[in-house]
Simulated assay, not measured.
Amino acid sequence: MYGDIIKEQERRHFIEKVEETKLPTNRPVHYIPHHPVSKESSTTPIRIVYDCSCKDGRDNPSLNECLESHPPVMNDITGILMRFRAKKYATTSDLEKAFLQIQLDEKDRDATETERKKDLLRSDEIENAKFLWIRYTQGKIFSDEINCIDNSTKRKTLVRQLKKLFLDEKQLLRCGGRRIDNATVGETVKFPYLLPAKDRLTHLIVLEAHENTLHSGINITLAYIQQTFWIPKLRQCVKSILMKCVTCRKVIGKSYPAPEIPPLPKERVQDATPFSITGVDFTGALTTRNRHNEESKVYICLFTCAVTRAVHLELVYDLSEESFLLCFRRFVSRRSVPKIMMSDNALTFKAASNEISRLCNSRKVKENIQNYGIEWKFIPNRAPWFGGMWERMIGLRKY
């Protein structure tokens, strides 16, 4: 898709192809890097971004620095648009690819060269790019050390610490002094490249080494990096970067701490007569055998006091409305009428969730409860810990 966009811009004369033999030699030529940027759009999911601030070297200016600057014209454009609104008729239009419609003079087109690679990058190109970034970083951070080595002047602190610091044939700073000059290992292991601890290139190298070692620990990442590079305070650098690794934090990070236990609700701790605040729940099905040796299922309806933790059990043959009302009447006859009744929400049940939901939310049950002047409370959805006072009693009844 990226190649198709390049061809489309070439077809519409936004850009033009230039042969290498036609490149001028008597005036400067800028090579502009470009890369794709994807976005969620149905019309232009991928667009090309040209980096005109890129430099070929430390002493070479970028294209943006060579262009003549002018005062902003957005205010003038706003004034023109406002004059359009003051008239009776006004026309508006949308310019497709507005900035690409600007055509450069033929003599100025050499300053906007871009190089397009049809094939994948070769290994030697990747290696040259790596040496380029190392040379740029060393020249930016260790310029005094490089001058000290070239001119043999008074040695800097870093040069005194690394006595065998030297420049190789590619003008890259390398370190010696590992005492493994005669070992059968690679040259980069004997004489690693010097890099600063706090630099973007060092950060990327540490991340790459961490991923290549399959997100191993600090020591393995250190050993992998030291085969090629010598970085002062490397352990601190690697440790600070690995602490921010999302993949490692998911594996070795601490689990989310459990929230503090909230205080008990006021219904559980206030002075009240037994069963004035009652929780109710059903046990699972129990298998019984009658005198005719026939098996049948029964259920236990458990009423528990929220204050004294007293328990009242009633046996029911099914989970119907009539069975629950009879069971509730027997409980009221024995333990008096409660003021507040609490029960599970339907979402907390497992096997009998549908039946309990229909039972507790039925109109007939609610009308009978209102006749007694009882307030019925349901615990919140997806919060089974609110019903712990009767769930614990249900568990004890099973044994």
Rank of each mutant, 00 (worst) to 15 (best):
H203P: 06
L204A: 13
L204C: 13
L204M: 14
L204N: 15
L204W: 07
I205C: 08
I205M: 05
I205K: 06
V206C: 06
V206W: 01
V206R: 01
V206N: 02
L207C: 12
L207Q: 12
E208C: 11
E208R: 14
A209R: 02
A209K: 04
A209W: 01
A209F: 07
H210N: 08
H210Q: 00
H210G: 01
H210E: 01
E211T: 10
E211D: 13
N212S: 11
T213S: 04
L214F: 11
S216C: 12
G217V: 10
G217L: 09
G217I: 07
I218V: 13
N219C: 12
N219V: 12
N219D: 15
I220M: 14
I220A: 15
I220E: 15
I220S: 14
I220F: 09
T221H: 04
T221K: 01
T221W: 02
L222H: 10
L222A: 11
A223V: 13
A223I: 09
A223Y: 12
Y224C: 12
I225P: 00
I225G: 02
I225Y: 00
Q226Y: 03
Q226G: 04
Q226T: 09
Q226P: 09
Q227C: 07
Q227H: 06
Q227T: 09
T228A: 13
T228L: 14
F229P: 00
F229H: 08
W230A: 14
W230Y: 13
I231S: 05
P232W: 11
P232N: 11
P232I: 08
K233L: 13
K233G: 10
K233H: 08
K233W: 05
L234Q: 07
L234M: 06
L234E: 04
R235Q: 12
R235L: 05
R235G: 01
R235C: 03
R235V: 05
Q236E: 10
Q236N: 14
C237P: 05
C237Y: 00
V238K: 01
V238I: 12
K239W: 09
K239Y: 06
K239Q: 14
S240P: 11
S240W: 00
I241G: 00
I241Q: 02
I241L: 11
M243E: 15
M243P: 01
K244W: 00
K244H: 02
C245P: 02
C245G: 08
C245H: 07
C245Y: 02
V246N: 13
V246S: 07
V246M: 10
T247E: 13
T247I: 13
C248F: 00
C248L: 03
C248I: 06
C248H: 03
C248P: 01
R249Y: 08
R249D: 04
R249G: 08
R249W: 03
R249C: 04
R249T: 07
R249H: 09
